[in-house]
Design a binder for these strands. Structure first.
Length: 478
RNA sequence: CUGGGUGUAGCGCAGAUGGUAGCGCGCAUGAAUGGGGUUCAUGAGGUCGCAAGUUCAAAUCUUGUCACCCAGACCA
């Protein structure tokens, strides 16, 4: 293969090797670096700035729905973790343990939180006594540790950043309402901010969270057709309340168990942003979370007046967008490639020829379309363009995804599609775990969710032929 | 955890049968150039992942170990 030496920094084509393409992007867009601890990633300023923007939006949505932020310890005593049996069984295999404090061996080992249900439960048990204390709507931003066997930047790392919401309610109805409310918050965030279309639905029992009564999910599809669980919301019912003895006195003076929920979204979503929107030139960032929304590249900047005009328009654009002016001594072509790699939504080119005509060239990252605009209206044009870019990114992602959703009515068809066409497969399911496991084994597909928007494909289960209960999205997942 | 691959300068790589390390890009300085990774000159930068072992001598051979990549299994 002939490699042009000028393009040594170029990334692997996504069609050639999607996994390698992903790795190239996270490294070359300077989002992460590897650390010396297995599976742990260093989130570099550019990656972290994206996370901060995600945080800002989500946090506002949480507050708007009445939630308060708290912070729990990162250590959980073994005995506390043990209290809910399904929960321990689910997490124990991937937990990191602290056994020494200084030089002294601990009498009880502490686990580094893989999630904080148990800590919240212990706390809720103390602070909830009466129906007047309910609901408690808490959230925390923190990192958690899960000793995963296979790790990849953002998608699955040993330590990762996330938020976990934990709420307790007086009634099952309120808990269910909260669970769905937060799922909707996630879906809205994904579509309105990240331009990622999602499928909302319920997890099967096999796939639900350890200790939950039911788990709801938003599933998104990556460019290679694989699924990424992008956020989950769990209704615990009174499972944890019983294990941790979280009771309150109701209006009638009777003791009742609380009903609890938890919901989370993590830095994993950054992996989705990369794999949903990215292309062979690098990242394509949704404008709302792009650390820099507009980059100005002056052309022939040493020439009289160019930088003055560039600075002038920068000041004006800064009132409507996060803007950066690159007046470094690199070549314009170098800058073009660099900022495409970084996924900056809009590039402004301004050179002597433009200045003569009182104009600038806008180039949108998603379509690469070049637009000439008068300097007089550059700020309003950019405002509109950022909105337009968001909308067309969402539309494009939706179209791509829908083109990769197939339907199967028989096991043979299911296997055939699984082997030959990347994407999701809609198929009917009887609800039995055996069938789900058989589909995993024979077709390599896991159930992604039972979507809220059900379709009737056939009357019978794609696997066993017995009466079907639900339409399920099946797919290969990250 | 299973199978395959990789580890030599910031990045990408070359170093046959052991003899003490090289190329391209990048970086620094200067000059020209500037609308898609521009050019020339000069220069800096490496205990060859780590640890033992064999040897007069190890990037090279042996063993161990750590990390990363890929495919699976496991799993938010």
């Amino acid at each position: 293969m002939v490699k042009n030496k000028k393009f040594v920094e170029a990334i692997t084509s996504m069609d050639e090797d999607f996994a390698q393409w992903y790795t190239d992007i996270v490294k070359k867009a300077e989002m992460v670096d590897y650390s010396s601890v297995k599976g742990c990633m260093i989130i570099r300023p550019y990656g972290y700035a994206i996370w901060e923007n995600i945080q800002k939006d989500l946090d506002a949505r949480f507050k708007a729905t009445g939630h308060e932020n708290v912070y729990m310890p990162m250590f959980i005593p073994e005995s506390l973790l043990q209290k809910e049996k399904d929960h321990v069984a689910g997490f124990a295999p991937e937990v990191a343990w602290v056994t020494y404090g200084g030089n002294e061996k601990l009498t009880e080992r502490l686990c580094v939180r893989p999630t904080s249900e148990t800590l919240f439960c212990e706390h809720f048990a103390k602070i909830v006594q009466s129906y007047n204390d309910l609901p408690k709507l808490y959230n925390q931003w923190c990192s958690v540790v899960r000793w995963e066997k296979t790790t990849r930047p953002f998608l699955r790392s040993t330590e990762f950043l996330w938020q976990e919401g934990h709420t307790v309610h007086a009634t099952p109805e309120e808990a269910e309402e909260e669970t769905i409310r937060m799922l909707n918050v996630y879906a809205a965030h994904c579509e309105e901010v990240l331009a990622i279309p999602v499928i909302m639905g319920k997890k099967t029992d096999k796939e639900k969270f350890a200790g939950a009564k039911s788990t709801y999910t938003i599933e998104s599809m990556m460019h290679d057709g694989k699924a990424l669980q992008s956020g989950t919301s769990h209704n615990f019912g009174d499972n944890f309340a019983k294990a941790f003895d979280i009771q309150y006195t109701d209006k009638n003076g009777k003791l009742q168990y609380v009903h609890e929920t938890s919901w989370g979204m993590s830095t994993r979503i950054i992996g989705a942003i990369i794999m949903v929107h990215g292309d062979d030139s690098g990242l394509v960032l949704p404008p709302k979370i792009a650390p820099t929304q507009v980059v100005i590249v002056p052309i022939a900047q040493h020439k009289e007046g160019v930088l003055d005009v560039a600075n002038e328009i920068k000041d004006r654009i800064s009132k409507v967008a996060r803007v950066k002016l690159d007046d470094s001594d690199k070549m314009p072509g170098w800058k073009f490639n660099e900022y495409e790699m970084k996924g900056i939504p809009v590039r402004v080119e301004i050179g002597p020829k433009d200045i003569e005509q009182n104009q600038a060239v806008l180039v949108r990252r998603d379509t690469r379309e070049k637009i000439q605009v008068s300097l007089d209206e550059i700020d309003t044009k950019i405002t509109d363009l950022l909105v337009d870019i968001h909308n067309s990114m969402l539309e494009k992602a939706r179209t791509l995804r829908d083109g990769k959703i197939h339907t199967a009515v028989s096991m043979d068809e299911l296997k055939d599609i699984a082997n030959n066409k990347p994407g999701f497969i809609k198929a009917m399911w009887c609800g039995k775990r055996e069938c789900e496991e058989k589909i995993k084994e024979e077709a390599g597909l896991s159930s992604r969710c039972m979507p809220f928007e059900q379709e009737h494909i056939t009357d019978t289960c794609v696997c066993c032929g017995e009466k079907a209960e639900n339409m399920v999205y099946w797919g290969k997942a990250y």
